[in-house]
Design a protein around this nucleic acid. Structure first.
Length: 143
DNA sequence: GCCAACGTTGGC
DNA sequence: GCCAACGTTGGC
């Protein structure tokens, strides 16, 4: 039973294209300096699935990733408070789901993307997961 | 580029 | 432990 998440990234800092280029090796999701976001990463298990969202530019969910390393120290700081996971790209959203689309869908009114705008690593419920996958044109969403 | 929302810091 | 000041995020 895996859980579902959403990672935000500004595409000019770390884009979905760059994430995909890392392939199976995945990449450390470093640089998170927010407790709530870190706590969400602490709760992640190997194989958990996540949406990859482009903030600032794009404003859309562009792909699906998977947790490929559980919580460990963030290599970009010596501060022991900050830890992170690694994620790898799984597949593209055939049709990216925009923030506008999410806001326009009553089923997604409680999504953290809408209610906790500034949280950069968010939990996603299974219902939300399925609905966003459906909107993105994924008939057989990774579960 | 602006600015509202909100998390963090630090003085008391 | 409160709260004002400050910094950052992120939509517009």
């Amino acid at each position: 039973m895996s859980n579902y998440w959403l990672f935000k990234s500004e595409p000019f800092k770390w884009s979905w294209e760059q994430q995909k280029a890392k392939g199976e090796a995945g990449e450390e999701w470093d640089g998170i300096r927010n407790y709530q976001a870190r706590n969400n990463m602490r709760a992640m298990k190997l194989g958990d699935k996540a949406f990859f969202y482009h903030s600032n530019e794009g404003l859309e969910i562009v792909g699906i990733a998977e947790v490929c390393a559980e919580i460990h120290p963030d290599s970009t700081t010596d501060d022991p408070r900050w830890e992170c996971v690694d994620i790898k790209a799984v597949c593209d959203m055939p049709q990216p789901v925009t923030l506008k689309d999410v806001k326009a869908n009553a089923k997604l009114a409680d999504m953290a993307l809408v209610t906790s705008m500034r949280l950069s690593v968010q939990p996603v419920t299974k219902d939300e997961w399925l609905e966003v996958c459906r909107m993105g044109g994924l008939d057989n969403p990774p579960l």
